[in-house]
Design a protein around this nucleic acid. Structure first.
Length: 373
DNA sequence: AAAAACGTCAACCGCCTTCTG
DNA sequence: CCAGAAGGCGGTTGACGTTTT
């Protein structure tokens, strides 16, 4: 790619290839690109794929944005050839991510949980749409900013200015809705005080900070932890009182002002509220959103109705965790017959919370160079 | 040893969206 | 505003390697 990104159509002619430009682009993005990681998927990557697939479905490009150095095609193939089969073997529907036996289950907590997951998917879809819109607006804003910079004629290097503007505009903005929801999770419950007090639940809803970081071996390691060492963001909050990650609060505040100025928050809010109303998301203890950035958003939902744990530990099970295998057997097999369900209620709640926290943090972790966000 | 079955994955296809003139 | 080009995405195919019979 000596000529960099540009016309793929012109590439075959220049390279003397008998392929169409589209084919060349595909070959490049899926195979030749230097920043592609090849080889076996790590446990974390597998878990990430499973969790994100549960939330996003077959949106491989969106999933790929959370797995650096992996292409959507590779993830798609891996899902179809490995994970899908493993799920099926375990009696879990790879499409719905719920135990197949539940397909016949009647009106119980399990069904409610299924619908809740469906609601979550709808939320995510709505969120992605809103996010895409915000990014578009942000790009427009940065473009106009660039024009201003060009006109200003200051001594500062224009490239740097552009980079600055671009990096600001491409910060993952959104997920505020999800974070609001996360804030709901972090409210005190019958299981005890989980998060900080003082009405804000300790979760800095104003910060879109990613909590996902990547170690040297490029394995995604969420700061909230994965199955090996589960530690929810709430734990972090409890322990440190702050949300780990790069502080970008100022940027977010600034952007919020811009969006508010552009009158998009109203649109966003109404959409969010509409989705909440239409999907019955209130059932999950999440009421309509006043403002995702506002502290009030953490006050929504006075009650917790823990999501029934139909996917409890299945990702761990898939990854060969024998301990979790038992938990899945309980949940997927005859969970309704489980006599000590009440006794483990808090446990289940915690695991659900951790599960969704994982997903939330994965989603929150949209790479700044993500093509989707 | 040979054939069949199976697994893997790069590549292709068609549809859709975005860009550009 | 419109039409064509280009790019993006998800589903599917087919070649090739490996395992099983």
């Amino acid at each position: 790619m000596r000529h960099g990104h540009g016309s793929w159509r012109a590439l075959p002619a220049k390279a003397g290839l008998q392929r169409c430009g589209k084919s060349c682009r595909l070959r490049w993005t899926n195979y030749l690109r230097p920043d592609i990681k090849r080889g076996k998927f790590s446990l974390q990557e597998e878990q990430t794929i499973i969790q994100l697939h549960a939330l996003l479905g077959n949106r491989w490009s969106a999933i790929a944005t959370h797995l650096p150095k992996r292409t959507d095609n590779e993830i798609k193939n891996y899902w179809n050839t490995h994970l899908k089969k493993r799920l099926s073997k375990l009696g879990i529907d790879p499409v719905t991510h719920k135990p197949k036996s539940d397909a016949l289950s009647s009106v119980d907590g399990q069904t409610k949980a299924d619908s809740n997951l469906s609601h979550m998917a709808q939320w995510e879809s709505a969120r992605l749409e809103a996010e895409a819109r915000l990014v578009r607006e942000s790009k427009l804003r940065s473009t106009s900013m660039n024009n201003q910079l060009a006109l200003s004629g200051s001594g500062v290097d224009l490239g740097q200015q552009l980079n600055k503007a671009t990096s600001t505009s491409t910060q993952p903005h959104c997920l505020e809705v999800m974070k609001a929801w996360q804030g709901v999770w972090s409210k005190p419950t019958k299981c005890g005080l989980i998060a900080g007090e003082g009405g804000s639940s300790g979760l800095d809803l104003e910060s879109p900070t990613s909590t996902l970081c990547f170690s040297d071996n490029s394995m995604p390691v969420s700061t909230v932890g994965f199955s090996d060492n589960p530690m929810s963001s709430l734990d972090l909050i409890t322990n440190s009182g702050t949300f780990e990650g790069t502080p970008v609060k100022e940027e977010c505040d600034e952007e919020y002002k811009v969006y508010e100025k552009m009158n998009h928050m109203g649109e966003y809010k109404s959409m969010v509220n509409s989705v909440a109303l239409n999907t019955g998301f209130h059932d999950m203890g999440f009421s309509t959103v006043e403002s995702p950035w506002a502290p009030e958003s953490s006050k929504v939902g006075n009650e917790h109705i823990p999501v029934t744990n139909f996917i409890e530990g299945f990702t761990n099970l898939l990854l060969g965790n024998s301990d979790d295998r038992n938990s899945l057997d309980n949940s997927s097999g005859d969970s309704s017959d489980n006599g000590d369900a009440d006794a483990t209620g808090c446990e289940e709640y915690e695991e659900n919370k951790n599960y969704w926290n994982n997903i939330l943090n994965l989603v929150n972790s949209s790479p700044s160079d993500s093509p989707t966000f």
